[in-house]
């Protein structure tokens, strides 16, 4: 007996990602926040360069730091930069893998060393700044 039929190729369903995909999951949202905070890191680096460029002019230098606009921007930039730093520091154990024989050095130690270095450098900068005063 012959079966008179044409093989039918089933169509597949493609589900495109919606434009707001990053709002649909907490982890995606936090990833986007982490990525967007780099704008503040870059922006603050530019601000610091401008500040250093005006270091010889005490009045302009002081104005750049003490204006209400500057204080407002600092208040926004600080949490952004802190969030950026913390999220990346916490990811360092995934990137930096250190072996001691068969044992992998604890991720806490790898991430912790970043925080220690951060604190030490911050204290050093603060010490230099306050000493100069």
């Amino acid at each position: 007996m012959t079966v008179n039929s044409t093989p039918k190729k089933s169509k597949e369903l493609i589900r495109p990602m919606p434009a707001n995909w990053w709002l649909q999951k907490r982890t995606y949202f936090l990833f986007m926040v982490r990525e967007l905070t780099c704008v503040f890191v870059g922006g603050y680096a530019v601000f610091l360069l401008i500040l250093v460029g005006r270091a010889n002019d005490a009045q302009v230098f002081s104005g750049l730091l003490h204006s209400p606009l500057s204080i407002g921007l600092h208040l926004i930039a600080l949490p952004m930069v802190v969030y950026h730093s913390i999220t990346w520091f916490n990811l360092t154990p995934k990137v930096m893998v250190v072996w001691r024989g068969e044992e992998r050095v604890s991720p806490l130690l790898i991430a912790g060393s970043n925080y220690v270095a951060w604190l030490m450098i911050s204290f050093l900068v603060a010490w230099i700044a306050f000493k100069a005063e």
């Binding site: 999951k25 982890t27 995606y28 990833f31 990811l91 995934k94 990137v95 893998v97």
Partner: peptide, 16 residues
Amino acid sequence: VGDCSRVCPKNVDPAG
């Protein structure tokens, strides 16, 4: 993004 490692049932850590 790191979600691959979060959902991995075998703790493979593909993101790492």
